[in-house]
């Protein structure tokens, strides 16, 4: 069993003419890697009619609908995060409820609002009620604002996580850019924050630091935009960890924080 906790799909109402090929490529590569379930999100229209990281409510719904359709098309292989924009609180909560009722298993927060902002509290509260994790897009050690996103870093995510100790938060793509060591130091003592290993970074020493900082019981395997780097990290973990430890990272940790029955064999 192998769960990719950080996947994305595209749809026809995005800027990408090759959206279908990219979706097929993810599933094909996933089969080769041995991915059992892709837990995915769609960030609105991926920039076509509203910004990727600031999706309009209408685009949020369109994107989530596209993901629900993919989930129905691939019921064994795809699960969804409901992507929402926390600036539209009522819409966000309604969208989460709608998507979870339709079979999604988590909440995706990109970079529409800083993670420590009080506007995220109603969403975190709903996550607690529905017992689903929140995948938070993270810039590892954000030293300034970056164009196109109101990115958060690990310190800001930990502020939110401390306010909601009964919710599992997933710190996105530790290898996705920025100072991962800063993030690992920040989340070490915040036990309801899990580290997603995805991202294009395959730095020597990063996985050792992940294990040393938060332990194998808080690591989740994923790919994001580069499945080759995900596979590389998995291969390295096979050497670094025992069989039982590896199973935690491959799927058992995910099975613990996602709703019961989210994955076929848990």
């Amino acid at each position: 069993m192998l769960v990719d906790v950080h996947a994305h799909f595209l749809h026809s109402r995005t800027p990408r003419a090759d959206w279908h090929e990219r979706n097929v490529s993810r599933l094909t590569a996933g089969a080769r890697i041995g991915i059992s379930v892709h837990v995915a999100s769609i960030l609105g229209s991926w920039g076509l009619t509203s910004p990727i990281y600031f999706p309009s409510p209408r685009d949020v719904t369109v994107g989530n609908d596209a993901l629900l359709a993919l989930q129905r098309e691939h019921p064994d292989a795809i699960r969804g995060y409901s992507c929402v924009n926390p600036n539209y609180t009522a819409h966000a909560r309604a969208e989460i409820t709608r998507c979870l009722d339709a079979g999604m298993i988590g909440i995706k927060l990109a970079a529409s609002r800083r993670a420590d902002d009080r506007l995220l509290d109603p969403i975190a509260e709903l996550a607690r009620e529905r017992r689903v994790p929140v995948l938070q897009h993270i810039w590892q050690h954000r030293r300034r604002d970056w164009p196109g996103q109101e990115a958060s870093d690990a310190v800001e995510l930990c502020t939110l996580a401390r306010r909601h100790p009964d919710v599992a938060f997933i710190l996105a793509h530790i290898g996705g850019g920025g100072d991962w060591l800063h993030s690992l130091r920040a989340v070490r003592e915040v036990l309801n924050v899990y580290v997603d290993l995805s991202g294009s970074g395959v730095d020597g020493g990063m996985l050792e630091e992940c294990v040393a900082s938060v332990g194998v019981s808080r690591l989740l395997w994923g790919t994001d935009l580069t499945m080759d780097t995900g596979w590389a990290k998995l291969r390295y973990l096979e050497l670094l960890l025992t069989k039982d430890e590896l199973a935690l990272v491959r799927w058992k940790n995910a099975a613990r924080i996602f709703p019961p029955g989210a994955f076929p064999t848990d």
């Binding site: 395959v202 730095d203 020597g204 080759d228 596979w231 590389a232």
Partner: peptide, 16 residues
């Protein structure tokens, strides 16, 4: 690019 990068990555690229 090893050891700054995991060499497994370039092998994985070819395997895919």
């Amino acid at each position: 690019g090893q050891p700054l990068r995991l060499p497994e990555n370039s092998v994985a690229k070819l395997d895919l």
